[in-house]
Amino acid sequence: MAGKLAGRSALITGGSHGIGRGIGEALAAEGADVFFCHLEPEADGEVAAQAMRAHGVRATALRLDISDPAAPDRLFAAAVAAHGKVDILVNNAAYIPPKTFLQMTDADFEKSMRVLLHVPYLLCRRFADAVIASRPAQPEDTLGNAGVILNIASASARNARADRPAYSAAKAGLVMLSKALAWELGPHGIRVISISPGVTRTKATAPFFDDPADERWRRMRAIIPLGRPGEPADFGHVAAFLASPEAAYITGLDFALDGGFSVY
């Protein structure tokens, strides 16, 4: 069975574990090639790439620090060089200094803005330029599938968190950047959607989700209507749908993928 994304090529930031890897595996399962960057040991990136290749697609990992000023351009060029093009961009890489406003340094704030907002902006720009340049003169694409940008935001964009003000502010910025780009890029057939995770199993949170006695998990479970954290596979399912032709009329929205957290 040919997947819904056969022939498409995806670029994901932060693809070796967690949400980024869940999305990479799901896009690969639907037939897309996947290029991703990560900051784990090389071997971890290769393990994730192999899991994606198991679906019969090309998958390539590149280890780099996305906060390095030269990294976004280097990453985009490497993805095009390896897989020929990028049709689906997933801005997922995150940086979360666990500091309150009164604790953080200027450098903490600047790096948060760099990784969470400036890097997605740069990659969106390279992506849009490339998609528009590669298409025939057709100013108003009617299918909305020339390109898809999925920006991973956060429930923190709508619900403030005192323990991570820079993160919350940057994610709110990313949600609005996505909407503005949806407007401008819509006539070029590029759809732009943000996805906002709530409580999610990541490398950082897994230890206490796996411990039923952990007080933090007990408190969190009480605020998630579906009673469990989001899993990487949940994000994969949603991303595969939103990137597919079946979602061709969906753009400019923030998709809360949080088991009901944001309505509680």
Binding site: W183, P225, D234, H237, Y249, G252, L253, D258, G260
Partner: peptide, 20 residues
Amino acid sequence: DQASYVTGVNLMVDGGLKVK
């Protein structure tokens, strides 16, 4: 079942009409 973690979502399907 692909949306098994999705609940309480009012999903806008409007071609971007709302943002403009």
